[in-house]
Design a protein around this nucleic acid. Structure first.
Lengths: 351, 351
DNA sequence: ATGAAAGCGCTAACAG
DNA sequence: CTGTTAGCGCTTTCAT
């Protein structure tokens, strides 16, 4: 095995100059300090020797590693890959690289993960798994390390984030159900510790109130997780009440999928017996049986903007934090239908 | 903003010892060199000061960064997230962290990505995007950097890899179609530059031969990419031949999805008019219309084993490379059905 | 068992 | 414009 790689000293020796001169040439910001002829020569030699800068060494010196940590709750949830990809590409364009960590939704390991990333001197963090009150986020802010939240935000206002207009999203879905004639509407939300879970829940209540629709509180459940099985369990619980309902609005596509499962178990058909809406428009929900009516958000945009905000923050740590709120839109597919005569007349008990 | 973090010198000063002593204590391998009492004291002080080792600095010295590069073609392809997650968790257990890069299937950037990772002194590489002949892989091997391939392998035999038994997988799918009575079977494969594309194609031909089934070569197409749109285009091309067929075996679930799309366009129904099989059993294919009959492979196992192999290789670079071949199994769902009378009698021209 | 000294590869302040 | 010097934080001989 040959000597691993040419370093700055090798280049300097070969060019008959001091290492620092080479360093200056190799760094675009300081290149102009060196005479053009010499710079060219050094560049050529560096090229010949296959020189690559060692970011560990330069990072040790400059405290800039061109590395950012990306923490997501579960890469296996189809919402996240497009976000991750967009983040990564945006970072790549600026010479940054992403350390990815899937926290597995476990709080404990998340702390360790972030610690690890900080130890590795990441220049900033993109967090997709933040809680509404999050001391992990707080501690990052306190330490002055640039942080951007995606998808979820925190209550504390001074942290950069790019999120969706959840109120609007829920309202769109709700109005759609109303327009189809539904009045007995159930809601399955997500964990209240997440801003998304909380905001969507509040938004649902508000939409109902504004529309003058009375919501039976027994038909409103906030699941503990944004997962299919949690959605399934929630709908089963709703079914057990024996109450009438003709539609269920969910705060997340996976929850909606869970409702599909529960409907299957109960031998009910969507949308014939129950209309269902989701949230996120995650990949492939258009292919499900039935195709899911849902609130579309631009996952790519979420990722791109998060990366952009973070890079800004890294360049200029003292600039004020920014919150971006992306506008969602409703995508109507096959899982919602007009309230039919049978449902309206006889009531539609789910038990 | 306070001084960022205690370093070894701070701990040493506080403990009234030399930094090297602290270093010895903090490193499990050298801890025994220090008297137990002193070690305990130093540990306590380190704890108090919130000391974290700076992996950049130690990596610079030891040439071990506890970082591995993971390159995948497209994180947005549902096959990869479970692999990535498994890799990442397995690495995490041993204190390693993953740098993730999505090569976007673009060869050019892939080279740059790997260069970047090498420059960052990764301890090893997990590659899911290798070509059958891959000078990128070759060059890594030449440089002596530990590499493990997942899912795809290369022709050169001396590189560690964990892949699937593609021959078996294809044969399972083929036999299934035969058992259902199909004889006019089309094949849509993947790019031949990928080992998966190549092996599955050869396997299809072999299975047909062994079964004594004559395959019309016009019904055999290898798509340029493992994508939905490539699958759609391929089936359209097959349809244009006007030949009879009752089933299509695809080398990948996304290709199968594309066939679904094409069937839609042609107003044909799966499985009524055409049976379709996929490969990979990627997440959610059980929910499609119709649920896809496909060859299941354990994505998690692929990831776990790849990480294990890489770690082994990092610990012991001179150990011989290992190839692991995981056994797939067939999952029969709704996209395949027995050849029906109508198809058998009249022929089933797709045009 | 502990300390001293050197150096991983790079950059930045200071000279000249 | 270029060279000198020092040091980022850590580990690892080599002494003692």
């Amino acid at each position: 095995m040959l000597k691993s790689r040419a370093n700055i000293k090798d280049v300097a020796r070969r060019a008959g100059v001091h290492p620092s001169t080479v360093s200056r040439v190799l760094n675009p910001a300081t290149r102009s300090m060196v005479s053009e002829a010499l710079a060219k020569k050094i560049l050529r030699i560096a090229e010949e020797l296959g020189y690559r800068r060692n970011p560990l060494a330069s990072g040790l010196r400059t405290r800039r590693t061109y590395t950012v940590g990306v923490v997501i709750p579960d890469i296996t949830n189809p919402v996240f890959p497009p976000i991750v990809r967009a983040v990564e590409h945006a970072l790549d364009e600026k010479g940054y690289i992403a350390i990815l960590a899937d926290s597995g939704s476990k709080r404990r390991s998340e702390k360790a993960l972030i610690e690890n990333m900080k130890a590795r001197q990441v220049d900033g963090l993109i967090l997709a798994a933040a809680n509404r009150k999050d001391h992990l986020v707080d501690s990052c802010i306190d330490e002055g390390i640039p942080v951007v939240l995606v998808n979820r935000s925190v209550e504390q206002h001074s942290v950069s984030a790019v999120i969706n207009d959840d109120e609007l999203g829920i309202d769109l879905a709700f109005q759609h159900l109303i327009d189809l004639g539904h009045r007995e509407i159930a809601y399955i939300g997500g964990p209240q510790r997440a801003s998304t879970g909380y905001t969507r829940y509040r938004a649902f209540l508000r939409s109902a109130k504004q529309a003058g629709v009375n919501i039976d509180r027994e038909l409103v459940i906030n699941a503990r997780e944004f997962t299919e099985s949690a959605g399934q369990a929630a709908f089963q619980e709703i079914a057990r009440t024996g109450k009438n309902l003709s539609a269920v609005l969910t705060a997340n596509d996976l929850l909606a999928l869970g409702v599909f499962d529960a409907l299957d178990d109960l031998d009910m058909k969507c949308p014939r017996d129950i209309s269902v809406t989701g949230f996120n428009d995650m990949p492939y929900v258009d292919r499900f049986v039935p195709p899911l009516t849902t609130v579309h958000i631009s996952l790519e945009e979420l990722g791109v903007q998060a990366a952009r905000l973070l890079l800004e923050k890294i360049e200029n740590p003292d600039a004020p934090s920014k919150q971006l709120r992306l506008e969602p839109r409703l995508i109507v597919r096959g899982s919602t239908a007009t309230l039919n005569a049978a449902q309206a007349k006889s009531g539609n008990r789910v038990a």
